[in-house]
C-alpha cells in the first residue's frame, strides 16, 4: 500500500489500533477539504499494531483533546517534506474550554464568561474533576 508523502501537514502516529476513527471524528477531519489518509492496523515495533492519520495541510490541533482520547500519540508537524517538530502527547494536567460540568450546582452554570476547567485527579483511571465543584468530568463525549 502506498500513501503519498506529505509536503506540509501533520502526521498523527502511534494511535492505539482502533482509535483512529474516534480521533478522525472528534477532530472533525471529515470537514477539511485537504487530503486526509487513515491507516488502520499498521505494523509497529513498539505497539504491535497502530493507526496513523496523515493530514495534507497544517491545521491547529487541540493536543488536550488528543491527550484525553489516546495519550501516547505522536504528532509530527511536516514542513517541506520533513519533520519540523515532533510532540509526544500525554494526558493533559488541565482541560480548559472543552468539556462542560454536569453539576447543576456548579458556579459554571451561571457565571458569565467563566471558562470550564477540569484537573487531572487520577491518571491511571483518566479521571478529571471540575476545578470549581470537583464533580467528575464526563469525557465520554470525546471518545
Amino acid at each position: 500500500m502506498i500513501i503519498g508523502q506529505i509536503i506540509d501537514g501533520i502526521v498523527l502516529d502511534h494511535i492505539t489500533a482502533g482509535r483512529g476513527v474516534d480521533i478522525y471524528e472528534t477532530l472533525r477531519l471529515g470537514e477539511l477539504d485537504c487530503t486526509v489518509a487513515m491507516i488502520f492496523n499498521a505494523d509497529s515495533v513498539k505497539m504491535g499494531r497502530k493507526d496513523i492519520i496523515k493530514i495534507g495541510t497544517p491545521i491547529d490541533i487541540d493536543l488536550d483533546v488528543l491527550g484525553i482520547i489516546d495519550p501516547g500519540i505522536t504528532v509530527n508537524y511536516i514542513s517541506n517534506g520533513k519533520v519540523a517538530k515532533r510532540e509526544h502527547i500525554s494526558l493533559p494536567a488541565t482541560i480548559r474550554g472543552i468539556l462542560k460540568c454536569k453539576n447543576p450546582r456548579c458556579i459554571t452554570t451561571i457565571e458569565q464568561g467563566l471558562t470550564q476547567e477540569f484537573r487531572l485527579c487520577d491518571e491511571e483511571n483518566k479521571v478529571y474533576r471540575c476545578v470549581y465543584c470537583e464533580t467528575k468530568a464526563d469525557t465520554s463525549s470525546l471518545k
Binding site: 450546582r105 456548579c106 458556579i107 452554570t109 470549581y132 465543584c133
Partner: peptide, 10 residues
C-alpha cells in the same frame, strides 16, 4: 457564602 459550588474560588 454562595449556593453555587466553586463561587468563592471564582
Amino acid at each position: 457564602r454562595h449556593p453555587k459550588e466553586g463561587a468563592p474560588l471564582v
